[in-house]
């Protein structure tokens, strides 16, 4: 009998394949303790009450002699974006070790080159997870960025990037083979994330009116894919605490399995 004629129920096989992947095993009771998470962004307000003591190191991109160097940063976060992302990550994984890599803001005006060097720095520093709630549409940078992402993949650095859902593609979220890309949705519980198979965007997480930390000790309600991305970063940190040996390939597979289960559960509820 040809393989195509076999009475194979794909649904059963699918259920068997993913049956052992359960949140209980993966992250229940975990806090992300000791997992190294880089936030490549506008800096983090290290004095914010919700973040105090959680930021292990802050560096910022400094152009010097035709090069971009990373030096200790004392300028905090004038823009707020990085602080907002850090607050979301720690709301999921309160004991992660945060590393702020500042590439946006008044002292690092946000060139594509600085962004690339920030990712490079995070890989060199052997971060386990890198949150990228930013991107570039400059096609000149897509080639070098793709190489960087491949390097991250080989070195087991998990990159989580905010998608750019309308109307143009921006990197790195389009390079879906070597990183996890995330888009916002309205409401929902962070662990109840979903997926969009067949799209450049892969995971769907809460990103509408998210209450999170803001420089100066306050909080803001923010909307954007930028704020869906850190939820997944936090969840990946929990998984890495439980199983530090997981590779990017395995993590993506697990996230897909859980997202599929979440979506199926949501459909059953509706029915």
């Amino acid at each position: 009998m040809a393989p195509s004629d076999a009475a194979l129920d794909v649904t059963d096989l699918h259920d068997d394949l993913w049956a052992g992947i359960l949140p209980d095993v993966l992250w229940k009771g975990r806090t992300g303790r000791g997992v190294r998470v880089a936030v490549v962004d506008s800096g983090i307000d290290t004095e914010h009450p919700a973040l105090k003591g959680k930021v292990k190191e802050s560096v910022e991109a400094v152009p010097e002699g035709g090069q971009i160097l990373f030096k200790p940063s004392t300028s905090g976060d004038q823009a707020g974006h990085g602080t907002a992302c850090a607050g979301i990550i720690t709301s999921i994984a309160p004991e992660v070790e945060l590393y702020s890599v500042k590439v946006l803001g008044p002292n690092a005006s946000g060139s594509g080159e600085m962004f690339l060097m920030g990712v490079d720095h995070a890989i060199k520093q052997k971060m386990q997870v890198v949150n990228l709630s930013l991107g570039t549409t400059k096609r000149d940078f897509w080639g070098p960025l793709h190489e960087l992402l491949d390097r991250a993949y080989r070195e087991r650095v998990i990159l989580v990037a905010a998608a750019n859902n309308l109307p143009q593609a921006s990197s790195p979220s389009i390079f879906s083979s070597s990183l996890i890309s995330v888009v916002k949705r309205s409401g929902g519980e962070p662990f109840n994330f979903g997926y969009q198979y067949g799209e450049v965007i892969e995971l769907v997480a809460p990103g509408v009116q998210v209450e999170t930390t803001w420089p100066g000790g306050g909080y803001r309600q923010l909307t954007g894919n930028s704020f869906a991305c850190p939820y997944i970063t936090g969840i990946v940190a929990l998984m890495l605490e439980a199983r530090p040996d997981l590779t990017p390939f395995q993590i993506k597979t697990i996230l897909y399995a859980i997202a599929k289960r979440n979506e199926m559960a949501a459909t059953e509820k509706v029915v």
Partner: peptide, 21 residues
Amino acid sequence: AGLVFSSGQPMAVNDVSEEGS
């Protein structure tokens, strides 16, 4: 605006007059 320009990501803020910078 400066943040959206440099991050390339759209953003909505409910109430900018809340506490914070």
